[in-house]
């Protein structure tokens, strides 16, 4: 009697994983990404550890400060997981939000063998607690490097509504590898910030096509800024996480030297390109203007053909 039941559970989990990553909440992403029933959250919302600073601005608090951290299993193996909630203050890093991720990474460093999955969905520093948020990001970056030096694989999954901006982009750049969907924009300065500071001639933030092709997942994949491009489903992110976990090598001085060469090479080849389409053309892609409209499966086939990924050079 148990076999049909297991079968039903499995297929229902798979069915649930056809859900859009972009549309899902942080908690739903974590629950469906990992093995059914395996997730245990640390300092969950029932502990009500809220931001000590938002009161000052008469802003609503959230009982988890916009991030879920915990452990679970991925295909039977233990993993640590952190997921930002882009719908609470744009997933921004505040004091408590950031400290949860720092603590998780330090535990991973101490253990040395359990990987960490970071589900980014963030606009960067939470300005109402800017100093605490900025320092939290600096601590997280250091904790990522300490964990990786201790042998931990740290994977970033990026496809949420807030994208991965500001200090979030720097943390992503510290990870062992990244999987990104088309919606998963990765950038330091956001479109509005560039426009505000440099003018609409420099960057028109209302030109959504420009935003996607400059910061979106397809460009990041073709440029080598992300290892894997995935379609916007939870199953695709799960498959990508498993694939990356099986292929990442150790981090050390050779990784950093390889990254130095990889980035120098990028500047040399594409430094004078005015637009993403010029980069894709220089990369040898015929009909580069059609890239933004390509369906995910066709894009993945194309990207795998034309561009090596940045594996072992991040």
């Amino acid at each position: 009697m148990s076999a049909p039941h297991t079968q039903t559970t499995k297929s229902s989990a798979e069915l649930d994983r056809t859900a859009s990553w972009y549309e899902a909440s942080a908690r739903t992403r974590v629950r469906l990404l990992l093995d059914p029933g395996s997730v245990v959250e640390f300092i969950g919302p029932e502990k009500r550890e809220v931001s000590p600073h938002l009161k000052l601005f008469d802003l609503p608090e959230q009982f988890d400060d916009g991030i879920v951290v915990g452990r679970g299993r991925l295909d039977g193996s233990p993993v640590f997981v952190a997921a930002q909630e882009g719908r609470f203050m744009g997933g921004a890093f505040g004091e408590v939000h950031g400290a949860k991720l720092t603590g998780l990474l330090r535990a991973a460093r101490d253990i040395g063998s359990v990987p960490v999955l970071i589900l980014f969905d963030t606009g960067g520093v939470r300005l109402q607690e800017a100093n605490a948020g900025e320092l939290a990001i600096a601590e997280i970056m250091r904790a990522v490097i300490e964990a990786r030096t201790a042998g931990v694989k740290v994977i970033g999954l990026i496809g949420g509504r807030a994208g991965c901006y500001g200090g979030g982009g720097l943390i992503a750049g510290c990870c062992s590898a990244l999987a990104v969907s088309e919606q998963g924009r990765i950038s330091v300065s956001g479109p509005e910030v560039i426009e505000t500071n440099r003018g609409v001639e420099e960057f028109d933030s209302r030109d959504r096509a420009l935003v996607w092709r400059t910061m979106g997942g397809k460009h990041r994949r073709l440029l080598g800024g992300a290892e894997v491009f995935v379609d916007d489903t939870i199953q695709d992110f799960r498959d990508a996480a498993l694939e990356l976990l099986s292929s990442i090598r150790a981090f050390g001085i050779d990784t950093l030297r390889a990254e130095q060469s990889r980035l120098e090479d990028r500047l040399q080849r594409f430094g004078a390109c005015p637009d993403a389409v010029d980069i894709w053309t220089a990369e040898g892609i015929p009909d580069a203007v059609s890239i933004p409209a390509l369906p995910a499966d066709q894009f993945i086939a194309l990207a795998d053909k034309v561009r090596r990924s940045s594996r072992d050079a991040r």
Partner: peptide, 25 residues
Amino acid sequence: QRMSKRDELLGLNEFLAHLAKSLIY
């Protein structure tokens, strides 16, 4: 950070992260 289309187009987050990683390492 330099706020420009070119810097973001070329993956500024990777360059800044790489510098931080090198210093921390």
